[in-house]
């Protein structure tokens, strides 16, 4: 059969597939009529074989290019993004992710790096006042001093609490995600962000806890501390894991190793973001409350226990490791 005859005969089917495509493009999966989708799939396969024929028989170039495009578009429509399943997501969040966090050396590298720098900086600032000035700067420190000069919470209203909560979400969780993203530079970006925050926060803590406003400062930071500091550590750990995948490829090519690790680090960064959101809520609504310190302390213990349960107890199962091996 001549090429022109083949093209002539197949053109109506191609036009049909085109109209199927524009029909499918703007509809969600649930709105698609199954009979037409079946017809679409049949036409798509027919056009696939038309393309093979076009390549092997040397159809005119424009026609071959047209078929390439038609197949490409039908292909992306036929194999659309999988629907979002809340069940899978919960399994991953409560079964696989804690297990991976617990077993990932990056978690513990970030954890020990943060706490050693934080406590070291805290001790240095507490012993030598000029250390905090050198790290944080004079003006920030005097701002902090005046902020905590009054007992907290006396003038806080619901409105300003909501504003501050929104600010903590935008600022802190944003810093966490940036810290994670900069991990793609072989983990260096995450480590720098983590170290900077540890030293900076340590200096402020050391300064404030030795100042006259120590009680007011302690009243404010205790309740949200565990969630927020752990979120910082987890963000950096996720970034470190991402960067480490480029260095230690486990036999894959560097790009492939990065691609295989990417989604897992995203889950860790997701947990960190959830912790940032919870911490922001506590920081905005609970920490400024004018109540006895024991309640704040109880909140810190409670949130710490939640973290220990999540990473330490839920993480003990082997599901995460098994899915890593698969």
């Amino acid at each position: 059969m001549k090429i022109s005859e083949i093209i002539e005969r197949r053109t109506p089917d191609w036009r049909e597939l085109e109209s199927d495509l524009s029909w499918m493009r703007n509809r969600r999966r649930s709105e698609l009529d199954s009979a037409r989708v079946a017809a679409f799939a049949r036409r798509y396969r027919a056009v696939c074989s038309d393309l093979s024929l076009a390549i092997s028989m040397r159809f005119p170039e424009g026609t071959t290019r047209y078929l390439h495009q038609l197949v490409a578009e039908a292909h992306t429509q036929l194999y659309r993004s999988e629907s979002f399943r809340i069940g899978n997501w919960l399994t991953s969040l409560f079964v696989e992710v804690p297990s991976r966090i617990l077993r990932d050396p990056c978690t513990w590298i970030a954890f020990f790096l943060f706490w050693s720098l934080f406590l070291g900086s805290l001790a240095a600032a507490a012993l030598r006042p000029d250390f905090a000035v050198a790290v944080v700067g004079e003006s920030t420190l005097s701002n902090m001093d005046s902020m905590y000069a009054q007992p907290i919470g006396e003038k806080a209203e619901a409105d300003s609490r909501a504003v501050m909560t929104g600010f903590y979400v935008f600022n802190n969780a944003g810093i966490g995600l940036k810290c994670f993203a900069s991990g793609i530079f072989l983990g260096v970006g995450s480590l720098i962000t983590l170290a900077f925050n540890a030293i900076f926060l340590g200096a402020i803590f050391g300064h404030m806890l030795t100042s006259p406003a120590a009680d007011n400062f302690r009243d404010f930071v205790t309740a949200h501390g565990p969630f927020e500091l752990t979120a910082v550590v987890l963000s950096a750990a996720a970034g470190l894991r991402l960067g480490w995948a480029i260095l230690d490829t486990k036999g894959w090519s560097r790009a492939e190793s990065l691609r295989r690790t990417g989604p897992r680090t995203l889950e860790m960064a997701g947990v960190a973001t959830i912790l940032f959101l919870l911490a922001a809520y506590i920081e905005g609504f609970f920490s400024p409350l004018y109540i006895a310190y024991e309640y704040k302390f109880a909140m810190a213990i409670g949130t710490s226990l939640i973290l220990i349960f999540y990473i330490g107890i839920l993480g003990l199962n082997n599901r995460g490791r098994r899915s890593d091996a698969a």
Partner: peptide
């Protein structure tokens, strides 16, 4: 359009990851 290497449509996790890493 963003697609996977395989030419298949991307899933939610790929979409989130590539957009968060835009910062880097």
């Amino acid at each position: 359009r963003v697609v996977s290497y395989s030419g298949l449509a991307i899933n939610a996790s790929q979409a989130m990851l590539r957009n968060i890493l835009r910062g880097a």
